[in-house]
Design a binder for these strands. Structure first.
Lengths: 112, 112
DNA sequence: GCTATTGTTCGATGGTCGACGAACATCAAA
DNA sequence: TTTGATGTTCGTCGACCATCGAACAATAGC
C-alpha cells in the first residue's frame, strides 16, 4: 500500500531513466495529465489498464524522478516534480510536454 | 549493405520512438558525437560494441528520425537531422543534448 | 578477376518490459 | 469487528531488446 520506493534525489536523476520512462505512451499520458502542476489522486486517473499495471507505471515514473507520491490514509496522490526537474534538466520537461501535446500522445489517460 | 531503412518524413516522427531511441546510453553517445552538426563516417565512430550491434543502433536512430544516413561507395556517413527535429519538436533535441552533456551520458562513444 | 573493406542480415542468447490476475496489507467506515 | 476501498507484490505470459558471431552482399583497389 505504501509506495515503498523512495524518491530519488535531484542530483541522482539519470537522463536515460527519464527517456525510458517516457518511451511509453501511457506514462506520457499520465505526465500530461499532471502537467498543470496540480496534485491528483490515483483513483481519479482514468487509465485503460488494471490497477497493478497502473501501480507499476507510477513506480517507474517515481523511480525516474518525474513524479512525487504522497499518501493520505489509503489513498495516494501524485504530482510532477516540475522544479526539481527544471533544476536538473533545464527545458527538458517543457519541450517534452509540448511535443506530447503536439502529437497528442497518451490521450488514453484522462481524469475523472 | 545499403541502409535499407527509409528515413521517416518529418511529420511522421513519434515522440515515444525518440524517447525509446534515447533511452540507451550508447545511442545518446552517438547523438552527442554528432551534436556539432558535422557528418561522420561510421568507421570513425569509436564504439565498444561489435559491428552488427553498431549497425543495429544506427538503424534505431535512423528509424526514430534522429539521424540521416548517406552512402558513398562502401562507406556510410551519418549526421543529425537537427533542423527537421527542431521543426517537429522545438527545443527537445537541444535540452536533451544539454542534459546528456551535464551528465556525461554516452562518453564511451568517441571519434577516431 | 581477386581481395579487402564495409555494412547488412540472420539466428541465438540472456535480459527486460508491459500486461494480467490473484493474494496480501493497510486504513476508513459502517 | 467486519466490510469495502485502495495499492503493493508475486508469478506468469508473450513480446521486445542488446549483444554477439557467422554468413552474405556490394564496392574499391590491386
Amino acid at each position: 500500500m505504501k509506495p515503498a520506493n523512495p524518491h530519488p534525489d535531484v542530483d541522482q536523476l539519470h537522463l536515460t531513466d527519464v527517456m525510458s520512462a517516457l518511451s511509453d505512451p501511457l506514462r506520457v499520458g499520465i505526465v500530461r495529465v499532471l502537467a498543470d502542476g496540480n496534485e491528483q489522486a490515483w483513483g481519479d486517473l482514468r487509465v485503460p489498464v488494471g490497477k497493478s499495471t497502473l501501480s507499476h507505471h507510477l513506480k517507474v515514473l517515481r523511480a525516474a524522478g518525474l513524479t512525487r507520491t504522497r499518501e493520505e490514509g489509503t489513498r495516494c496522490y501524485v504530482r510532477l516534480r516540475t522544479e526539481d526537474f527544471e533544476t536538473r534538466f533545464p527545458g527538458l520537461l517543457t519541450s517534452v510536454l509540448q511535443a506530447a501535446h503536439q502529437e497528442d500522445v497518451g490521450a488514453q489517460v484522462t481524469l475523472t
